[in-house]
Amino acid sequence: MIKEYHLTMSEKVKVTIDGITVEVEPGTTILNAARQIGGDIVPPAMCYYSKLEGSGGKCRTCIVKVSKGSEKDPRPMPKLVASCRTTVMDGMEVQNITSPEVIEARSGVVEMLLINHPLDCPVCDQAGECDLQNLGYEHGLQKTRYEFERRTFERIDIGDKIQLHMNRCILCYRCVFTADQITNKRVHGILNRGDHSEISTYIQTAVDNDFSGNVIDVCPVGALTDKTFRFKNRVWFTKPVDAHRDCPTCSGKVTLWYKGEDVLRVTARKDIYGEVEEFICNTCRFDKKKTADWTIEHPTHISDTSVISSNHYETMIPLPVIQEDLRLQEANKVELEKTAKF
């Protein structure tokens, strides 16, 4: 037993990301190794989705610098690599936020992603929980340098519940992988090539599957949106609540987005990287919009830095103005007891 334990320990490989060392299984990607450490050093990802097989390698936002290839071959890798597609080697050293080269290259990638992306955040329903918006805020320029016309498309209805805004698409292929993985018969994919590529369902055939609504959740931008929630309200005015129900087709674990008494929207639960925990079925997503349909658990935990949690923070974190002094706290307590006595 102990021997086996040692064996597995020795099989693990050591990788250092921004000076933090972590031991991971061989075959893990750099991105997943960074996610095991967590915090600021995790590269952002627009196309990689841990729940979708084969995703990643499209958007290039997760690029990192490998300053030491491995213990055996310590030469650095010649170019920045996509961390979602590069597996770790023993003794590898990776720089993400500590390397100015990576930060600069990433802001270049963001600029490229925003070339054809319209600046219609005030209209877009995804605003407030949009990965591209966050990325643009952190890395993007204030202005665009692109002088040509952005490519434009008409809105397309995929079925009667999902809407596709091809204008906003960044071609991450996540929805294609979802369709591939969750449905047995794919009905939507990418047409044309290069600059002309676009997501389509081939003559707008309705995506007819119980889980087709999940393409809305996996979309990192507002290209695929929920038609039942269209223009209903801004995300940050709604209150997310975790709930579940007995669903014959899916796990039934969802997040309900309340405005007052009404459930405006139902989505799958998302983790800190914005990836859904479990895919939910269309009945749960589109048809069960009454509180009576659900067993409510608790308010969803939303990061304090998110706009969604503005004006209703769940934890009180006072600013560290005064240094904590235990002696002072003790003295205050004694004084309080004295006054209570009188």
Partner: peptide, 22 residues
């Protein structure tokens, strides 16, 4: 006005409300 809700979000007195439509 496109009913983006940023005025209502920034309002410290929460004086602004709006309903959007297509």
């Amino acid at each position: 006005c496109t009913a983006c809700g940023l005025c209502a979000l920034s309002c410290p007195a929460e004086a602004i409300t709006m309903i959007a439509a297509e």
